[in-house]
Design a protein around this nucleic acid. Structure first.
Lengths: 221, 221
DNA sequence: TAGAAGTATGTGACCAAGTCACATTACTAA
DNA sequence: TTAGTAATGTGACTTGGTCACATACTTCTA
C-alpha cells in the first residue's frame, strides 16, 4: 500500500520531484495513535520523523513545581520541530508531546529523512520552514506571557479552541495549563465572561455564546 | 586568505571531511560588526549563514506596547537559529538581532550553506543541533517567565551577565528588558539585593559583591 | 439508591508583580 | 554654571498568583 493521499495535506511537499515523492511514499508508514498517547517526552525520544495527517498533538512543558503550559499544537499538515531536532541528534529537551485526539500520522524513518534532506531542496525547505514557524511561534508565546493580560489571552485561546461549534470540553484546570496560569485565575475570568453573557459554563464544558465579544477583547492592545 | 582558525571554535565542525572543510573555508568570509549593529530584524533578512567567532549577539523581541525581552544570546561557537530559518526560506518573524559588543563572525553564502547541508551529515547535524538548542532554550525562557519569581530570575541573570569581574554595565531599564518586566520592578529588587549587601549599584552599573548569595537564591525551587 | 469517594468549581484573604504618576538625582554638553 | 537629558526612587493602585478551605457535581459501590 502506497496510497499517497496524505501528501496532498502538506502544501510544502507538493512540488517534490516524482522520484523524491516515490521515495517518501515507499518509506513512509501511516500510524494511528489513540488519544492520550504520549508520543515523546523526557527520556522518550521519537524514532522517526512525524507528519500529522489527522488529529492534533499537544506539545507541553511541565515545571518542577508541577505546573504546566501548552507550548503549541501540531495539526494536520504540520510536523513537530522538536521531534525533528531530536531526530537529528539533539536529545536533551523537557517538553512532551501528547496525542490530544486520536491521531493519524505518517512516519518516515531517520535514514529516509536524512536521504531526502540530501536529495531534495524542496524537502529541505519544508523542514527548515517548519523550524522557523515553531521558533516564531514560541517567540509569540513568550511575548504573550510576558506582556499580555490574562483576560485577553484567555479570550484568544477560547476562540482558538472553540472551533465551529463554539464548545470547549476543558476543565478550568486544563484551561489554566493552556495559558500557564493558576486554576483560580481561570475560574474568576470565566465567571466574569459568563456574567457578561459571553460564554456559558458547566462542569468541564465552556460554550461560547458571543464570539464577537471575545474577538473584540482578544484584539485588545 | 583562508585561515581556518575560526573553525576550531566550533566543536560541531571539527569532524568534517577535509573536502567539506575546504569548501567551508573557501566560501566563508570573516566579517566585523561594531557594537550596536542591527544584524537582522523585521524587514531586514540576513543574507548569509552566520557563525559568531567573537563577541556577542543579542536576540530580542519588542512588543506592540514597546516593551522588550531578550530571547537569547549568540556567543562564540554558536550560530543563530533564527537567521538560519530565515535563510532557508521562512522570513516572517519579529525578533531582531543586535551586536551587543563588537562582533567577529564568519559568513557562509546561502548557496554554500545549501551545498554543505547536502554533502555533509556532520554539517547537517551541526545545524539541526543548533535549532534544537535554541528551541529548548526558548522553552526554558517560557517556563521561567511563566513560573519563576522575579527575584530568582534576576539573580540568575545577574550571575550570567556578571562574568568574572562581577560588574554589569546595564541600566535598570536594560535589566528590565532582559527579563521582560518593568523598570520599577527591577529597581526595587536591586535595592533589596543592595540592602542585603549582595550587590552595589551606581548609575548604569551593578557590581556583584556576594555571588554565592545570588547563586543560592537563583537555585531556589 | 443512598452514601462515599473523587473530581471540579467557588471564594476570601493575602502576597507578588506590574502600572501610573511624579519626584529626585546623576550626568552631559553648551 | 546651567539647562537638558537620562537614570533612579517612591507611593498608590491594579492585576494576577497563592493558599486554605468550602461547596457542588459524578461516579462507584454497597
Amino acid at each position: 500500500m502506497t496510497t499517497a493521499d496524505w501528501i496532498s495535506a502538506f502544501p510544502g511537499l507538493n512540488k517534490l520531484d516524482p522520484e523524491i515523492t516515490k521515495s517518501l511514499i515507499e518509506a513512509s508508514k501511516v500510524v494511528h495513535l489513540p488519544a492520550g498517547t504520549r508520543i515523546f517526552g523526557p527520556g522518550q525520544a521519537p524514532q522517526a520523523y512525524l507528519l500529522v495527517t489527522a488529529g492534533r498533538v499537544r506539545i507541553q512543558q511541565t515545571s518542577d513545581s508541577g505546573r504546566e503550559i501548552v507550548l503549541y499544537r501540531v495539526s494536520p499538515g504540520e510536523s513537530c520541530a522538536l521531534t525533528t531536532a531530536c531526530l537529528m541528534g539533539f536529545e536533551d529537551y523537557q517538553a512532551e508531546g501528547i496525542a490530544e485526539t486520536d491521531v493519524e500520522a505518517v512516519t518516515i524513518p531517520r535514514a529516509t529523512f536524512d536521504d531526502l534532506i540530501t536529495r531534495s531542496p524542496e524537502f529541505r525547505k519544508f523542514v527548515f520552514t517548519a523550524f522557523g514557524v515553531r521558533i516564531t511561534n514560541l517567540c509569540r508565546v513568550i511575548e504573550d506571557i510576558a506582556f499580555s493580560r490574562i483576560d485577553v489571552r484567555l479570550a484568544q485561546r477560547l476562540l482558538e479552541l472553540g472551533g465551529d461549534r463554539g464548545r470547549i470540553e476543558f476543565t478550568h484546570q486544563q484551561m489554566a495549563s493552556e495559558l500557564g496560569t493558576a486554576r483560580e485565575v481561570i475560574s474568576r475570568q470565566l465567571n466574569e465572561f459568563q456574567r457578561r453573557g459571553w460564554i456559558a459554563t458547566s462542569r468541564g464544558i465552556i460554550d461560547i455564546k458571543q464570539p464577537q465579544a471575545l474577538r473584540q477583547l482578544a484584539a485588545a492592545p
